[in-house]
Nucleic acid binder design. Structure first.
Length: 244
DNA sequence: GGGAATGTTCACTA
DNA sequence: CTAGTGAACATTCC
């Protein structure tokens, strides 16, 4: 269930745990959890689709993959893959992967690429696209977490539709103005996605993701796996231009 | 009940 | 060595 906005949404629910001390860390993930116990949770951050629990000299990332979920002060019947306990309270993760990092998030992640962060740097990403990604298809590049951290299948499909660009368009063939507009659409839609989560209306309000017909010209959508990425892609062949 | 899904990694093959 | 493929994941939703 997680693209970047979903992770940020979860992070926002955890603010009250900031500054609290971990009484127990559990779960079946193999990562060594003993180092976390009795430490104060300094901060909770996100990078793309990763939730980051920051301690003094290290941090732990939690990734939900496709099936993962999080519960606060509730449990499922199955065992948690990772859990942080704070006395009576607890945060439980299911089917989540964790990773232990030394240092600070900034040492490992470039926040300029996180589409939901104030640090997102449009010029940096534009330069990366034009300099190193020119021969690739934009639909593939949008899913590259090193360039568009937090973007998932829904955001890429909706953003390309809003920008009127066909996902198989070569990056180098897309006019710069259109690329800049696409970046804006990605950021704008990611923020809207976050808002839509509050009322659980992401899929309902999507323009073409999960739909059959283009809302604008009522033509049938083209739905297939496009590019090199094995993900279902929705395209309106009339509204979205292919730059070759 | 079955298929598909907002994701990524890793084993395996050519 | 590289690139592609497919499975796996204590799942969940229609």
């Amino acid at each position: 269930m997680p693209e970047g906005p979903s992770i940020l949404f979860l992070k926002n629910k955890l603010q009250r745990f900031k500054g609290k001390t971990v009484s127990e860390a559990s779960g079946y993930v193999e990562m060594d959890k003993s180092e976390i116990v009795n430490l104060k949770l300094i901060d909770i951050e996100t990078y793309g689709k990763n939730l980051l629990f920051v301690f003094k000299d290290f941090f732990v990332s939690v990734h939900l993959g496709l099936f993962g979920s999080m519960l606060v002060n509730k449990r499922k019947k199955v065992n948690a893959s990772f859990a942080l306990h704070f006395g009576e309270s607890e945060i439980n993760f299911y089917v989540a992967k964790t990773k232990f990092y030394k240092g600070k998030p900034n040492d490992h992640f470039n926040f300029k690429t996180d589409v939901l962060k104030p640090e997102f740097d449009e010029d940096f990403v534009l330069n990366e696209l034009q300099t190193n990604q020119g021969d690739k298809m934009i639909g593939d590049v949008l899913m590259d977490q090193n360039i568009f951290a937090g973007v998932g299948n829904i955001i890429r499909i909706e953003s390309l539709y809003h920008a009127k660009i066909h996902p198989d368009s070569l990056v180098k063939s897309i006019p710069e103005k259109k690329l800049i507009f696409l970046l804006k659409m990605v950021v704008d839609y990611s923020e809207e996605f976050l808002n839509l989560l509050k009322t659980d209306k992401v899929k309902e309000t999507a323009m073409i993701y999960g739909k059959m017909i283009c809302p604008k010209d009522k033509s049938e959508l083209f739905i297939e796996e496009l590019g090199k990425i094995k993900r279902k892609t929705y395209v309106c062949l009339k509204c979205q231009k292919l730059y070759k």
